[in-house]
């Protein structure tokens, strides 16, 4: 091979290595976008979320997931920002079916303003996930002792969401509202405590361990 050919081969190989390395770096630092809560007055804000039984889009179409509403559109993220020392009102549209929780201790709500959440217009502070439709998902911030639970959609429903996320409101769902009081600024991890990652060891791999799906961070900002 001529000298120029060897140089070209080396450059191509070098470019390939750089491209692979860059791809790895981009993949590792990929981060879901952060949604901002909608302000309501001076000391409160609103966060609207939905849980979908399957994302039905790449890269993980089979994974269960949260989505957060930003303005008029749904964003595939679990990162959101709320104001410090404020009331944050959550509205969650729960489209997934339910199951028992691994630890029934999580069958109850905790540290919600008013002591309960509202499910389809009814105040609820405890659900027996071992009977009925069980619990589809939960929203818990262990560091703050906060926990909200979302009853599952009936497994017998013939109108379950099966389209690419987000799920339109025409599909069967439960509407849950609850309010939490934020404290000092900080970054608080939150997660679902229902072992809902089917096909993964003990139900806590895959979407349960990946930002943007079933866990994330609530950024409390001043």
């Amino acid at each position: 091979m001529a000298k120029s050919g060897r140089i070209a081969a080396v450059l191509v190989a070098l470019a390939a290595v750089v491209a692979v390395a860059a791809g790895v770096v981009v993949y590792l630092v990929a981060y879901p976008p952060t949604a901002s809560a909608s302000p309501v007055g001076s000391a409160s804000a609103e966060v609207t979320m939905q849980t979908v039984p399957a994302y039905n889009q790449d890269p993980e179409p089979t994974w269960v997931s949260y989505m957060i509403k930003q303005g008029d559109s749904w964003v595939h993220t679990t990162m959101f920002q709320v104001p410090a020392h404020s009331l944050v009102h959550f509205t969650v549209y729960q489209f997934d079916t339910g199951s028992p929780l691994r630890n029934p201790f999580m069958n109850q709500t905790a540290n919600l303003v008013g002591g309960a959440e509202n499910v389809n217009g009814k105040d609820v502070s405890l659900i027996d996930a071992n009977v009925g439709d069980g619990v589809g998902h939960s929203f818990a911030i262990p560091a703050l002792g906060v926990s909200a639970i979302f009853p599952g959609v009936s497994g017998d429903s013939t109108n379950q969401c099966d389209v690419a996320a987000p799920c339109p409101m025409t599909f069967d769902h439960n509407t849950i509202t609850f309010t939490i009081q934020t404290g000092d600024p900080g970054s608080y991890a939150w997660q679902c405590f229902v072992p809902c990652a089917l096909g993964y060891p003990i139900g806590f791999g895959g979407p349960m361990s990946t930002l943007g799906y079933m866990n994330g961070f609530m950024e409390v900002v001043a």
Binding site: S99, P100, R102, P104, N130, I202, G203, F204
Partner: peptide, 10 residues
């Protein structure tokens, strides 16, 4: 836990 879902044994 049950093996299928990892829940408590009822």
């Amino acid at each position: 836990p049950q093996t299928d879902g990892g829940y408590y044994d009822p």
